[in-house]
Design a protein around this nucleic acid. Structure first.
Length: 375
RNA sequence: GGGGAGAUACCAAAGUGGCCAACUGGGGCAGACUGUAAAUCUGCUGUCGAAUGACUUCGUAGGUUCGAAUCCUGCUCUCCCCA
């Protein structure tokens, strides 16, 4: 499924190709988040033509609650339902165990949720989450895990990690005893946990590596811990996870986080930041971060990002986009989302080119300074 | 011409003797957002100061009172009803 093309001599960075039945994906890759079967505010057409996304995310928890698995099955899976013929990855709902923690109870069997929509009670188990993801039909599906919060004491982190491991083995059993429903291949990625504790991360990475799955994910990071801690954990984990399998860092992150993680050997990313922060007026550019709501852009009629990552980025002016965002116009959210996503895709694509040229480290060091800047 | 109501900060609008530099919306300015319960949330918004605080404000000019956005009088302006 995955083949490495080029390894950087001076860092852990590498380029690769990920094969799916919905197209091949060059790594490093950024995957736009489309929780409820839509990347918020962005047409599928624009995901292809402007953003140039080869793979996007959906979320098991959200899709299970609405529209529900019956509709998804009837539709023939999420690809058909949303008319997306490129690759899909579904998150398992593990993150919702974390983010909706007030509405949930954890047990060995699984997690009891209360729907954020109507308060109704539901149970997710490692098995049922595999079943649901079979019905959704994503190319890559995720094991059901617990994403512990930060800070998190050692005992909780250890117990949580071990629960995630037990859940993984149950998920694998279910996954291996069921098949795809729609004629294309599905693979399951397990998830490394262990909070910010080196020995737990090591233990978890070894456990996950031993399952010999087609790809491996790293979860439970960027939940509030300092970035340095995240890099430290990545360094440990990536030293253990097999080289010849893609490594997916879940939920990360800022452009700088992504470049640092690529440096440490991560291949796949997703994050709500380009879309959510875009809707809220934050734009990512090569020169740094723009808060387009700031008054200083009111009469700046230059392109949002001249010579930028998408046609949209150069088609509209900063002053116009500011006006739209300030006015709460939905076109503003669309433009900002498309631009930011295109920027993220450009960033990882450029990283890939730099790795191929053997100049990744130098380029990254230059870029991280500019990218973190507020302009 | 007669009768009535009103004038509060950028806008709207509370407040009717001390807890008022003045509720609340909106607007403005800034911040947050990392496997999306987020087109959401937070802070500030008279002047000066990092702050304790100081100073100037509730149409306008006076007055009553220890104390006035609030009570009294004159003036200016606005709106409504009748003719």
């Amino acid at each position: 499924m995955f083949e490495i093309q080029k390894k950087d001599l001076y860092s852990g960075a590498r380029t690769g190709i990920l094969h799916t039945d919905h197209g091949i994906i060059n790594t490093p890759v950024f995957m736009p988040v489309g929780t409820a079967g839509t990347v918020k505010g962005v047409l599928q057409r624009d995901l292809k033509e402007q953003v140039k996304a080869g793979i996007i995310l959906g979320n098991t928890y959200h899709l299970y609650l609405r529209p529900g698995i019956d509709i998804l099955r009837e539709a023939g899976g999420l690809h058909k339902f949303m008319n997306w013929d490129r690759a899909l990855l579904t998150d398992s709902g593990g993150y919702q165990v974390f983010s909706l923690s007030e509405n949930r109870q954890l047990k060995e069997e699984g997690a009891m949720f209360r729907s954020h929509i109507d308060g109704s009670a539901h149970i997710f188990s490692p098995e049922s989450v595999v079943d649901i993801q079979r019905i959704i039909g994503a190319d890559i599906i995720m094991a059901f895990d617990e994403c512990p919060p930060y800070p998190c004491d050692y005992d909780y982190a250890r117990d949580s990690m071990m629960l995630t491991h037990r859940w993984l083995d149950r998920a694998l059993e279910r996954f291996n005893s069921t098949g795809q429903l729609y004629g294309h291949r599905q693979v399951l990625f397990p998830i490394v946990q262990g909070s910010v504790y080196s020995d737990l991360r090591k233990q978890s990475a070894e456990y996950i590596a031993a399952r010999n799955m087609p790809g491996n994910a790293i979860g439970g990071l960027s939940v509030g811990e300092p970035a340095g801690m995240m890099y430290e954990m990545l360094n440990i984990v990536n030293g253990i996870l097999p080289d010849d399998k893609p490594r997916y860092l879940m939920g990360v992150g800022t452009p700088v986080n992504i470049l640092e993680a690529i440096d440490l050997g991560v291949d796949m990313f997703d994050c709500v930041m380009p879309t959510r922060n875009g809707r809220n007026g934050m734009l990512f550019t090569r020169e740094g971060i723009i808060n387009i709501r700031n008054k200083k852009w009111a009469d700046d009629f230059s392109q949002i990002d001249g010579d930028g990552p998408s046609d949209i980025s150069s088609y509209y002016s900063k002053a116009y986009l500011r006006h739209l965002i300030i006015s709460g116009e939905m076109l503003g959210a669309q433009i900002a989302s498309i631009h930011n996503l295109a920027f993220y895709l450009w960033l990882v694509d450029e990283a890939r080119k730099q790795i191929e040229k053997g100049e990744f480290r130098n380029w990254k060091n230059k870029m991280t300074v500019a990218l973190a800047q507020r302009i």
